[in-house]
Amino acid sequence: MSTIASTMADYRHQLRNNRLGLWLFFISEAFLFGGLFVSRFYLWGNTRPELDQTLGLTITSILLLSSFFMNRAEMAIAHDDRRTFLNSLLITAALGILFLIGVVGFEWRGHIRPWDGAFGAVLFGMTGMHALHVLSGVIFILIVWNNGRKGHYSSERHWGVEACAIYWHYVDVIWVFFYPALYLMGTVVR
């Protein structure tokens, strides 16, 4: 085997290890989010607090939209389209930051405070843990963007982009479960 071919084989071997490792991490994280999810039903039962529905729908849409741009970025680097790749990453990060502003800047400043019984605890616990993951995802995207700007990824070698994209989608999917649990299910208590 030539050196380049053997390096590529090593890379592909490590790539498959990395993918499995990342998915195992997701399984692990699913238990963390699952624990919060179960706590919501254990404590709230069939009730929920009154929350700003417009805000909830808006931030959810923003996050879902960001996943589209994340996917676009990954597709672009797979076809060596560097411009679209970098632009899409920035759009994704911007949408992620908008989501964070929506949660931290508006949702958290509503009429419910963290110390207001189980409503406050679960609402802030779930959105807080999720927001922490969104924040880490935004940082991850910016790191990938910075490295992409320096030309570190190619259509053949872009594990960093792939990991970042899957992570972002994963955090997005968590919200798909959290949003109805917080905003839609159960009877509003006034």
Binding site: L43, I112, P114, D116, G117, A118, F119, G120, A121, F124
Partner: peptide
């Protein structure tokens, strides 16, 4: 977080504000 921020996951007692919101207690 219950100790530091007062988030009542486990506190069975509710503050007057929480009662006004209709919040269930912690468990």
């Amino acid at each position: 977080v219950e100790r530091v921020l007062g988030m009542g996951f486990f506190n069975p007692n509710l503050s007057p504000e929480a009662i006004a919101l209709g919040s269930p207690p912690g468990n």
